[in-house]
Design a protein around this nucleic acid. Sequence first.
DNA 1: CTTGACCTTCCCACGATTGGAACCCTCATC
DNA 2: GATGAGGGTTCCAATCGTGGGAAGGTCAAG
Lengths: 150, 150
Amino acid sequence: MNIGQAAKASGVSAKMIRYYETTGLIPKAERRDSGYRDYSPADVHMLRFIRRARDLGFAVSEIDELLSLWRDRSRQSADVKRIAERQIADLHNRITAMKQMADTLQSLVACCAGDERPECPILADLEEPADGTELPPPASVGFARLPNRQ
Amino acid sequence: MNIGQAAKASGVSAKMIRYYETTGLIPKAERRDSGYRDYSPADVHMLRFIRRARDLGFAVSEIDELLSLWRDRSRQSADVKRIAERQIADLHNRITAMKQMADTLQSLVACCAGDERPECPILADLEEPADGTELPPPASVGFARLPNRQ
DNA sequence: CTTGACCTTCCCACGATTGGAACCCTCATC
DNA sequence: GATGAGGGTTCCAATCGTGGGAAGGTCAAG
């Protein structure tokens, strides 16, 4: 199976399959005489696993952990659960931070007339944050991979 | 005022101040005889504006828009409101996507024994997603800048 | 044999930020 | 006046995941 077919079957682009190979996330693919990579259904299975984990917001480093657990028949489900729970916590941190941003903006928008007059509370707030909005803390909220704008 | 003091006063790192200058987000700073950049309180004001907008999740390109509106006395507050609303919509898109991820993970975690046994529904789902989880759509959910893990 | 679709490797770009190297400037202290 | 610390300056590289493209080899159908 060529890389293009594996890409279509797994939902992982050919570009990314090659990238994952160079970074060591997946083992080097078999090669045919022509030099073409050759993928088995098992490989596609693994790629679908990766794709699904990406969709769930796991970072590649975490997928690396998940893959080794997946391959390890004597794994302990507690290990997997721990990774998933860490991921959930990361997601919740980010969701909270983003909600806060959205709420702040929303309250500013609510005050903004949105007409042709130049007075704008949004710009005013950007100039002089209303109450003690944190400047000092560089705002660390953990990390989780998210789909980018296409 | 040196760049270091401007950085401390604005919450924008010296590195980023120089970067913003090269990208044209901010005008070139005045130079002293020594070659040192020299910042006025007004400059610090602008940097705080940028910092605040970053904290609110605006992309640099959007801050560019906001800055021109900020500097433009004849700006229409409707323009500012439109940008803010777009930003809110982006945030909500991302929040929704992340909630979905977290919920899916949560339901998987709830099914996982989390003990020493190898059976793990989380890995099982990554292998074969339960119901028709969308593979085709490459998951596009808009974009908003977020603080990274430091 | 040609054509077009695929594959290969390699390099570049994005966005925002950080880090480092190599070098110059300023100030306080000895 | 010399010295050292701690600024400043420039330039270059790396991050992470992904896409784009060039230059060239392979394959199957017409």
